[in-house]
Simulated scan of single mutants.
Amino acid sequence: MSIVLIGYMGSGKSTIGRKLAKIVDFEFIDLDDYIQKKENLSIPQIFETKGEIYFRKKEHLYLKEVLQLSNIILSLGGGTPCYGSNMDAILNAEGAHSIYLKSSIPSLVKRLTPEKAQRPLIAHLKTEEELTEFIGKHLFERSFYYSQSNQTVVTDGKSIAVIAEEIVASLF
């Protein structure tokens, strides 16, 4: 079995993924980290030097590669399910179970505000109002893909441990 964590940036995919991997003794893979290692470039460098189309093609290729593995917890980039046929690849991967970590807009704003500078997609946003509007628009656009996940876990007001245990209890 593989567990694929889907959700908006700041929803806890990597943090919860690492916790889950420890609990169930699976390997944790962050797709962005995997791409960076394979390409020997950071994600911003790939975008800057080779462009988004190149990145999205490689993202799809590496996603399919990782989905061949078993006993993994895979954390995706927030946009990964929304491009090309990535969501179909996830849903059709043998033994893969996708989980949408659903966070409310206020929760995402609260989590993302302190780390805005490290997030290129939102670094340019000056006010909390701009960030709220940006996240709301993105979530609206992406919800079609996210909602196709096999399972949805609401993260608001829950600790990492509680979310991880909820996922484990539902799957094992």
Rank of each mutant, 00 (worst) to 15 (best):
M1T: 07
I3K: 02
I3D: 07
V4F: 01
V4M: 03
V4T: 14
I6Y: 12
Y8W: 11
G10V: 13
G10S: 01
G12K: 01
K13E: 07
S14K: 06
T15Y: 00
T15W: 00
G17A: 08
G17D: 09
R18I: 06
L20D: 06
L20G: 13
E27V: 07
F28E: 11
F28A: 08
D30N: 07
D30F: 04
L31S: 05
D33A: 13
Y34C: 02
I35H: 02
K37V: 12
K38M: 05
N40T: 09
L41S: 11
I43N: 00
F47T: 11
E48W: 10
K50Y: 13
G51L: 14
E52Q: 09
E52K: 03
E52S: 03
I53W: 01
F55P: 11
K57A: 10
L63K: 04
L63A: 05
K64I: 00
V66W: 03
L67V: 00
L67A: 00
Q68K: 15
Q68G: 08
L69H: 11
L69T: 08
N71I: 00
N71C: 02
I72M: 01
I73C: 06
S75L: 05
S75K: 06
S75W: 03
L76H: 01
G78S: 06
G79V: 09
T80S: 11
T80E: 02
P81V: 09
C82S: 09
C82N: 05
Y83V: 13
N86C: 09
I90D: 14
L91I: 04
L91E: 09
A93L: 03
E94K: 15
G95E: 02
A96L: 01
A96R: 08
H97T: 14
H97D: 02
S98K: 08
I99M: 03
I99L: 02
Y100T: 12
L101A: 09
K102C: 08
I105S: 03
I105P: 01
I105V: 15
S107W: 02
L108R: 08
V109P: 10
V109A: 11
R111L: 07
R111S: 06
R111V: 06
R111K: 08
T113Q: 13
T113M: 05
E115H: 10
A117Y: 06
A117S: 14
Q118V: 06
R119P: 05
P120W: 05
P120E: 10
L121H: 04
I122P: 05
I122C: 11
I122F: 08
A123D: 06
A123P: 06
K126R: 13
E128C: 00
E129Y: 01
E130Q: 15
E130R: 02
E130L: 01
L131V: 10
L131G: 12
T132V: 04
T132H: 12
F134T: 11
I135R: 05
I135T: 10
G136C: 04
K137M: 12
L139M: 15
F140E: 15
F140Y: 12
E141H: 15
E141Y: 13
R142D: 04
Y145R: 03
S147M: 04
S147W: 05
N150C: 01
T152E: 15
V153E: 06
V154R: 01
V154N: 08
G157S: 12
G157E: 13
K158M: 14
K158V: 01
A161W: 00
V162H: 13
V162G: 02
I163H: 08
E165M: 07
I167E: 07
V168H: 07
V168P: 00
A169R: 11
